[in-house]
Nucleic acid binder design. Structure first.
Lengths: 196, 196
DNA sequence: GACAAAAATAGAATAAAATTCTAGAATAAC
DNA sequence: GTTATTCTAGAATTTTATTCTATTTTTGTC
């Protein structure tokens, strides 16, 4: 078995098992059986069940963040950049159904923050870059001025909930995708109608 | 010990333990020690560790949903109803810090859906009522027409993410509360500027 | 207020699962 | 080719959830 093959086989098996059953009810024995690895081999690659979970998160978020970053960085206009960002998020989860299900269903960002500091750092860096990219549009008044910590929730919050629903089949991307980007844009675009 | 006292003591202890450690690393022994109940007593009230978790969810979501329902139902105007809805969500989590942390951090809606069907049903009913309430405003063109499954994500998504951040201290409610309601309103209000 | 029935508690016993350990096989480094 | 390192195996151990049996407390009834 080639270099790193076994490790990935274990991760793949774990992902299957974790999405089929719940995190707690999935046993190491399940993972062992599905991956074909021995107990010793599993514990050679991962210190514990939790470490397997963390490794999956790192893999998933690493890839997702990379894609999101690429989406807005370099975009010249606010609207197109945000549109691309929303699209990248939806697109990633669309293309990584199992891992995405695991990421959205299993644990929250805060759980990850303590268990997977690398992911937390990467997320913080991504947010910093996004805010930096937004800055000129806020300054010019094209995007509403808000406490900085609010932008990501306003952009990602709706995306996340939509993808949750997509995962359980109550929403289709074909219809949601363009409308979602527009809705996010409206929530951030300045110079429009005010509400009470 | 009075009627139902022990059950609640167990739930309280479990909540403490679950928020202090992770769901898996929190043991029945931890709960036993903190609650002062015996093993037998715990298993008399709850069939398993998972049942304790579900009971906490039912308690939390039952109360939250009740409050959200009260917020918009009967509101005469779209803007004020949505404002009240957002406020009720933020307010509830503000007032139930521990339970709220548990609910947002621990498990997702979908996990709950399979484990706690009562919660899922209640959530579905709440959504139905919200959409029914929204209907006239959509018909009149005051609120944008979207696939029905998109409204809740657009409203609750940002709220959820904001509260997550509030829980870890990166956002204060004093500043976020009014701005969030406005942003949600903008994302739903029709007849405004279009984006590419 | 005595008494049966039901609910609640206790803690020991068991079962299930995670993790550790010791030894052996494969691979890489030199 | 040989030595060191990584990897694999599977049995042994430890930890944790759950079950079981017996005892106590409460509740409803006369």
């Amino acid at each position: 078995m080639a270099k790193g093959q076994r490790r990935q086989a274990i991760l793949n098996a774990a992902l299957d098992v974790f999405t089929a059953k719940t995190l707690t009810s999935a046993t190491m024995e399940d993972i062992r059986a599905k991956s074909g690895a021995s107990t010793g081999s599993i514990y050679h690659h991962f210190a514990s069940k939790e470490h397997i979970i963390v490794a999956l998160f790192e893999q998933g978020y690493g890839d997702l963040h990379r894609r999101m970053r690429a989406a807005f960085m370099g975009a010249p206009a606010a609207a197109s950049g945000l549109h691309a960002l929303v699209d990248s998020y939806l697109g990633w989860f669309h293309e990584h159904e199992l891992l995405g299900r695991f990421m959205l269903q299993t644990a929250s960002t805060d759980y990850v923050a303590s268990a997977a500091p690398a992911v937390a750092r990467d997320a913080a860096e991504l947010e910093r870059q996004l805010l930096e990219w937004l800055q000129p549009f806020i300054a010019s008044g094209e995007i509403v001025a808000l406490p900085l910590a609010m932008y990501v929730p306003l952009i990602i919050g709706p995306c996340r909930e939509i993808m949750r629903r997509w995962q359980v089949g109550t929403v289709t991307l074909a219809e949601a995708r363009p409308l979602l980007a527009q809705a996010v844009w409206r929530s951030l675009a300045a110079g429009q109608a005010h509400a009470p």
